[in-house]
């Protein structure tokens, strides 16, 4: 290897080092990831229970969704018995004043917001800190997915981040969970696949939905 030209020799050395380091870090990540996820769940569990008090269990389903908005850190599904009852999204939105970490619940049966809870905020104390945000009623409880929040006076930056979080959550839900509406949107495409069908109806919405993947399952 020492007979190679210097730039090539050095590049090869750095590539080999990169491979070793990459392998080592993935190994450590494999070992620590379950603990990190468990720690995160411990922090959000009281809020999950507050948002969906009748849930029997919560499941982390983040890994099932690829190519989702980077602001969505985790996706939880609440179950009552064996039925999915709500989707809860851990969303982190930010602007020049800092991050806001929130947990947004959406009821699967009504397609409406359950509420929003704030986990952490690095925005201005007294105007945008986590206690202040949790005390403020943004009026999203029971609201439709296209809700415009009741802005928080004197702190437009916090309100914007909150609105961003709600829009991101709503978009995720529309793309991945909300059933029924896609029929109209994709009817023409579906007709080309099953031209003889009389009726099209969405029967399951909680599939990974992005780009060219399956958008929904329809029965004729």
């Amino acid at each position: 290897m020492s007979k190679l030209p210097k730039p090539l020799h050095y590049s090869l050395l750095l590539i080999i080092l990169g491979i070793i380091v990459g392998a080592l870090l993935s190994l450590v990540n494999m070992f620590t990831a379950p603990y990190i996820r468990e720690n995160k769940l411990k922090v959000v569990r009281p809020m999950l229970e507050e948002l969906v008090s009748n849930a029997d269990k919560f499941e982390v389903v983040t890994d099932q969704y690829k190519n989702i908005d980077k602001s969505i850190q985790d996706v939880y599904v609440a179950y009552v018995g064996e039925n999915q009852t709500a989707v809860l999204l851990y969303v982190v939105t930010s602007n020049q004043y800092g991050d806001i970490e929130s947990l947004i619940g959406i009821d699967i049966t009504t397609n409406k917001f359950i509420n929003i809870k704030f986990i952490a905020s690095s925005q201005t104390k007294g105007f945008g800190d986590v206690d202040t945000l949790n005390k403020h009623d943004f009026k999203i409880q029971g609201a439709d997915l296209d809700v415009e929040i009741d802005a928080y006076a004197k702190a437009s930056f916090s309100s914007k981040s909150v609105q961003d979080a709600i829009n991101i959550a709503a978009q995720f839900y529309r793309n991945n969970f909300k059933t029924g509406e896609q029929v109209d949107e994709f009817l023409e495409e579906i007709k080309t696949i099953l031209p003889d069908a009389v009726k099209y109806q969405s029967i399951k919405g909680n599939l990974t939905i992005d780009n060219n993947q399956i958008v929904d399952i329809y029965k004729d």
Partner: peptide, 16 residues
């Protein structure tokens, strides 16, 4: 590269 690898391992271990 060596330093950042060690720091990343510390970061992940502390988070866990």
């Amino acid at each position: 590269v060596v330093i950042s690898t060690v720091v990343t391992i510390i970061d992940m271990a502390m988070a866990a």
